[in-house]
């Protein structure tokens, strides 16, 4: 896979992060390439979720988080003074571990983000219908739900809920999708379906995905970052990381000696 020549979509420089007095990230400097799937792996507590969450600044509402260093997304440091948080969240979508559709209709879920960011006071119904169909098509959910768009989203199966959670990000046309163990609440069949979907979405979006599941990282990502104790140990194309890891710690982890 030719991933080397791609430009970086996310670039962190000397990123340090503290929860109170506990330092969770140490000098993280990374270049995450545009239009591919990069997976973050490592044992529990290694800082992978923290790193993911600082990329759309969702960590911030915890008052005791302190950050040093920078995260550039599409060339702009999202921690700069002149950055509007709402725009950050719009450009950088987030999918959570447990599917969290809002307790409103499927259609309203898909349009929720769109309505937040739409400058028009009213969008014609036909245009909204198109947006809903397009988003649901992209996440391979349209055929299952097209006849029950007004039903509550919380009635869907977990797999469908998670697909919907991805679909609702798409109408605002984000550049980056962050996923925090998006399949860990799903059964094997659901996992497979959502993985397939994520694979379909690459190229159009830069996808950064945290996973506990080594097989998933290997199957469904093009580059892989291995973290340990808040530090990046290795960042390389997935295939080479799993076949010929450069670091001893990576090899140990991949072979299941800890984690």
């Amino acid at each position: 896979m030719q991933t080397d020549k791609r430009p970086a979509a996310i670039r962190t420089r000397d990123l340090n992060l503290w929860y109170g007095t506990f330092q969770a990230l140490f000098d993280v400097s990374l270049e995450i390439k545009q239009g591919i799937i990069t997976s973050l792996i490592g044992p529990s507590g290694c800082g992978k979720s923290t790193l993911l969450r600082s990329v759309n600044r969702i960590n911030e509402r915890l008052g005791y988080v302190r950050i040093d260093g920078s995260i550039e997304v599409m060339g702009k440091n999202i921690y700069d003074e002149d950055v509007e948080l709402v725009q950050v969240r719009k450009q950088i979508g987030m999918v959570f571990q447990r599917p969290n559709p809002l307790p409103i209709s499927i259609r309203d879920n898909v349009l929720f983000g769109y309505n937040l960011h739409s400058e028009k006071r009213r969008t014609p119904r036909s245009e909204l219908d198109g947006i809903v169909e397009d988003a649901l098509q992209q996440v391979l959910l349209w055929d299952q739900v097209k006849d029950k768009l007004n039903r509550k989203a919380t009635d869907l199966s977990l797999e469908e809920q998670q697909k919907l959670c991805i679909a609702r990000l798409l109408p605002v046309k984000p550049g980056v999708l962050l996923m925090d163990e998006p399949c860990s609440a799903l059964d094997p069949k659901g996992t497979e379906a959502v993985e397939e979907l994520i694979w379909e979405l690459r190229e159009k979006y830069t996808i950064l995905i945290v996973t506990h599941n080594m097989a998933q990282a290997r199957r469904a990502s093009e580059e892989c970052i291995f973290m340990l104790m808040g530090k990046v140990i290795e960042h390389s194309p997935t295939e080479s990381m799993f076949v010929t890891p450069a670091q001893q710690e990576t090899a140990d982890y991949i072979e299941g000696r800890y984690g």
């Binding site: 759309n56 969702i58 509402r61 948080l85 709402v86 725009q87 950050v88 969240r89 719009k90 979508g93 987030m94 959570f96 447990r98 969290n100 559709p101 809002l102 307790p103 929720f112 983000g113 937040l116 960011h117 959670c165 609702r168 990000l169 605002v172």
Partner: peptide, 18 residues
């Protein structure tokens, strides 16, 4: 009201009031 609903909203760029 589950915290997950709030996180879902915030992560899409909704303000507190929204």
């Amino acid at each position: 009201v589950p915290q997950a609903f709030r996180e879902a909203c915030w992560s899409m760029g909704a303000t507190r009031w929204q």
